[in-house]
Amino acid sequence: MILDQFTKKLFSSKSGKDSNAKSLLKSISWRIVGTIDTIVISYIITGQLVMAVSIGSVEVVTKILLYYVHERVWENASKIKADEPAAEYIRS
């Protein structure tokens, strides 16, 4: 009962949007689903469980790093556009 109230506070926000904690847990669970998918596909292709788990283990690290770089590139691209001065037109 006490845990239920704590969980509701942790995962809800007043604006109706997901809380940061819920978004983080959703991200982690999605990464787990993606890694399991990679392991299953790798096992189907290679037929070797050890190889499939190895591929899945490497995939977790590389996807996290690639996602981080992807986010930073998008963040910088957004800032450049936002920081540019507005175009001024001369009327004649």
Rank of each mutant, 00 (worst) to 15 (best):
I45L: 11
I32G: 02
D4P: 00
S92L: 14
S13H: 02
A21G: 03
N20I: 09
K22D: 00
I2D: 15
A86P: 00
S13N: 05
I41L: 11
I32P: 00
W74A: 15
P85L: 10
D37C: 07
E84T: 10
V33Q: 13
V50G: 05
S12P: 00
H70N: 08
S92E: 15
V73L: 14
M1K: 12
I41S: 13
Q5E: 15
L10H: 03
A86C: 03
K81R: 08
I45F: 06
Y67G: 10
L65K: 07
V73F: 07
L49K: 04
S92P: 12
M1I: 09
N76S: 13
K79Q: 09
I80S: 06
I90A: 07
Y67V: 07
K26S: 12
R31P: 00
Y68M: 06
V73I: 08
T46V: 09
N20L: 12
E84F: 05
V33F: 10
V40C: 05
I64Q: 01
G34Y: 01
D83S: 10
K63H: 07
A82L: 10
V69T: 03
D37S: 12
L49M: 11
W74Y: 14
Q48G: 01
M51G: 00
S57C: 11
S57R: 02
G16D: 04
L10I: 11
L66N: 13
A86F: 07
V50F: 06
V50Y: 02
S27I: 00
V61P: 02
S57I: 05
V58C: 03
M1A: 15
A86M: 05
S23D: 12
L3H: 10
K79L: 07
I80W: 03
I39N: 00
K79E: 05
V53T: 07
A82Q: 09
T35I: 09
V60A: 02
G56C: 02
S54T: 13
R72E: 08
I41E: 14
T46Q: 06
K14V: 13
I45K: 11
T62A: 06
I39K: 00
S92G: 11
S78N: 08
K14Q: 15
M1S: 15
Y67N: 12
H70W: 08
G47E: 06
N76E: 10
D83A: 08
L66D: 09
T7N: 14
M51S: 09
I39D: 01
S42G: 11
I41R: 08
G56V: 06
L65G: 07
I80L: 12
Y89C: 04
E59Q: 13
I80F: 07
W30N: 15
Y67C: 06
E59C: 03
M1N: 13
S92T: 11
D83P: 01
E71D: 12
S57F: 10
K79C: 02
I39H: 00
Q5R: 07
K81I: 12
E71Y: 15
K22A: 04
V69W: 06
L24R: 05
G16C: 04
W74R: 14
K63N: 10
V58H: 01
L65Q: 09
A77G: 14
V73R: 09
V73P: 01
Y43N: 06
T46P: 01
L49H: 10
L66C: 07
V50T: 15
V73T: 01
W30V: 08
L49E: 15
E88I: 11
S54R: 06
L24E: 15
I45T: 10
Y68E: 03
F6H: 13
E75A: 14
V40F: 04
A86Y: 08
